[in-house]
Amino acid sequence: MEAARDPARISPQCSEQQFAAMLQRMVANEAPRLFAVVQEYGDRVDRRVAAWGMAFADHAEVVAVDGGLRMNLRKPTNALHAFHIGSHVRARLVWFTPDAATEVSLGRVRLTRGCTDRKRLPGLPGWAVGTVPPMPAPPPHSWLATRRTDLERRQRWHPPC
């Protein structure tokens, strides 16, 4: 009886390549949706990503970017109340869209999609490489300028639209 349960004694039912393809399809079908909880200061004055989350079929997991808060919730929208602050900071849920990314920073190197004036990257069509300029300081009236945690000082400021 014990020998029948030992998977080492059972022959593979497909090739390694077929099994890898099955695993890729399984992961693609079962992957959770990624979202961010974004805090908005005023009416489009300033913003920051406050937390990241994964939405599964029956629940959502949320982790604050500063690592101080983790939540297991029934729905992603249930996380928003934890990130509203007073009457000036409201939270909104933003679903991650991979095609919306325009650049990726890797240390002192920045990869930019859709740039024509930078060095093209072989093997990555549509992407170019350049150096990362110094991070701009937020304007003095910015909400981020008034925040004093290490995380916000390291976080890249996003100018208003």
Rank of each mutant, 00 (worst) to 15 (best):
residue 2 E to L: 07
residue 3 A to K: 02
residue 3 A to I: 14
residue 6 D to I: 13
residue 7 P to D: 11
residue 7 P to Y: 05
residue 8 A to Y: 11
residue 9 R to S: 12
residue 10 I to H: 08
residue 12 P to I: 02
residue 13 Q to K: 13
residue 16 E to M: 02
residue 19 F to Q: 04
residue 20 A to Y: 01
residue 26 M to V: 10
residue 26 M to D: 15
residue 30 E to H: 11
residue 32 P to N: 05
residue 33 R to K: 02
residue 33 R to W: 00
residue 34 L to F: 12
residue 34 L to M: 09
residue 39 Q to L: 10
residue 39 Q to G: 02
residue 41 Y to S: 04
residue 42 G to L: 08
residue 42 G to E: 05
residue 43 D to C: 07
residue 44 R to D: 13
residue 45 V to I: 07
residue 46 D to L: 00
residue 47 R to F: 09
residue 50 A to V: 04
residue 51 A to M: 06
residue 52 W to G: 08
residue 52 W to N: 07
residue 57 A to H: 10
residue 57 A to F: 07
residue 57 A to N: 06
residue 57 A to E: 15
residue 62 V to W: 00
residue 63 V to W: 14
residue 63 V to Q: 10
residue 65 V to W: 05
residue 66 D to H: 12
residue 68 G to V: 03
residue 69 L to Y: 11
residue 70 R to S: 14
residue 72 N to W: 15
residue 74 R to K: 14
residue 75 K to C: 01
residue 76 P to S: 12
residue 78 N to S: 02
residue 80 L to I: 03
residue 83 F to G: 03
residue 84 H to S: 12
residue 90 R to F: 12
residue 92 R to I: 03
residue 92 R to K: 13
residue 94 V to Q: 07
residue 96 F to H: 14
residue 100 A to D: 09
residue 101 A to G: 01
residue 102 T to K: 02
residue 102 T to H: 05
residue 103 E to V: 03
residue 106 L to I: 14
residue 106 L to R: 08
residue 107 G to F: 03
residue 108 R to L: 14
residue 109 V to T: 06
residue 110 R to P: 03
residue 113 R to F: 06
residue 113 R to V: 11
residue 114 G to R: 09
residue 115 C to H: 14
residue 117 D to F: 11
residue 117 D to Y: 02
residue 118 R to N: 13
residue 121 L to W: 01
residue 121 L to R: 04
residue 122 P to H: 05
residue 123 G to E: 10
residue 125 P to A: 13
residue 125 P to M: 14
residue 129 V to N: 02
residue 131 T to L: 10
residue 134 P to W: 10
residue 136 P to F: 04
residue 138 P to T: 07
residue 138 P to W: 09
residue 140 P to I: 08
residue 144 L to D: 09
residue 145 A to D: 00
residue 146 T to M: 08
residue 147 R to E: 15
residue 148 R to L: 13
residue 151 L to R: 13
residue 151 L to E: 12
residue 152 E to W: 06
residue 152 E to L: 14
residue 153 R to V: 01
residue 154 R to S: 12
residue 154 R to L: 14
residue 156 R to A: 02
residue 157 W to V: 01
residue 158 H to N: 05
residue 161 C to W: 09
